[in-house]
Design a protein around this nucleic acid. Structure first.
Lengths: 154, 154
DNA sequence: CGAATAAAGTTGTACTGTACAAGTAGCCGG
DNA sequence: CCGGCTACTTGTACAGTACAACTTTATTCG
């Protein structure tokens, strides 16, 4: 195996580690402040960033099964974090949007997240954060493309 | 929220996306070629990289509960991928090492992984891969440090 | 030395996050 | 207005993980 290959194996390893770590601190934060499951909170964050949408659109946006979105919406709706209104022109669907309460909750959680990041990455300048984020986004886009190709033609 | 904060929220989002994507293609690859659970394969990879160790050491290395390692070892052992020998000086523990068969299997899986990476990140030069890997590793180290602090003193 | 305590590992249980499959309700083309 | 398609919901399964109870072996201390 070439050293270039090694680098790619290392990349996978670090990605795995990053997932685990993220999971660990999300879970820890959640136990300190329960009331909304982490994955549902991510959906809320998506709604805040990209705006209202129908469940099936949300599923595509987040790259998960529609059933996952359906349950997350149930939970968020029960907690009053999102509003659902019937989709005009389609009685099967509804349109989901973040509620005021959801926005407030999201702000609160985000503050907790940023506080942790401040502690963890305190000495990273904004440049560095941005660079890593950009590279990751790029990688995600490329991986997504490769996965789609695979499901379609192989 | 400042734009610097935005960057950090974005980072979290991309990390989450990366985990999901990684999970998606690992699962896909696993269904094409079953026989060893992905997490167990990661343990095998760890054993290949860092060498033999006791279960409790492996748990620390991989930042997971000992019970997780215990079950993964059971599986790997049943599949003949690892050897366990009693730890000298401690009858409670055993020492786990990768077997020849495990090494072969790992090579096979790694080849599959690299093939996928080639397709997904084909136009990334080694520099770019290395840079992302390094940054991620750095972040992981910092996050780990922050998590430890938290569990100890907060 | 022997009893109490600690540590290493195993096994039982629970829970998140996810996917797939089956079911239900609304839409649409003939 | 009926057969098939689509959007969603609900049931079920499984990976991956953590925590807690238990077993066996070490260690420490009276």
């Amino acid at each position: 195996m070439s050293s270039a290959d090694d680098a790619r194996v290392e990349l996978m390893r670090e990605l795995k580690a990053a997932s685990q770590l993220q999971h660990a601190w999300i879970m820890q934060a959640w136990q300190d402040d329960p009331g909304l499951h982490p994955a549902a909170a991510m959906l809320l964050s998506d709604l805040a960033k990209h705006g209202e949408a129908r469940p099936s659109e949300l599923a595509k946006r987040r790259f998960v099964d529609l059933s996952v979105i359906s349950r997350q919406i149930s939970q968020l709706s029960a907690a009053g974090m999102v509003d659902r209104r019937p989709a005009p022109e389609d009685g099967r669907a509804s349109i989901i949007s973040i509620s005021e309460r959801g926005r407030a909750e999201l702000g609160r959680r985000r503050a907790g997240y940023l506080e942790f990041m401040e502690r963890a990455l305190g000495d990273w300048d904004d440049e560095k954060v941005l660079e890593l984020t950009t590279r990751l986004a790029e990688m995600n886009a490329d991986v997504r493309a490769a996965l789609s190709v695979r499901t379609c033609d192989v």
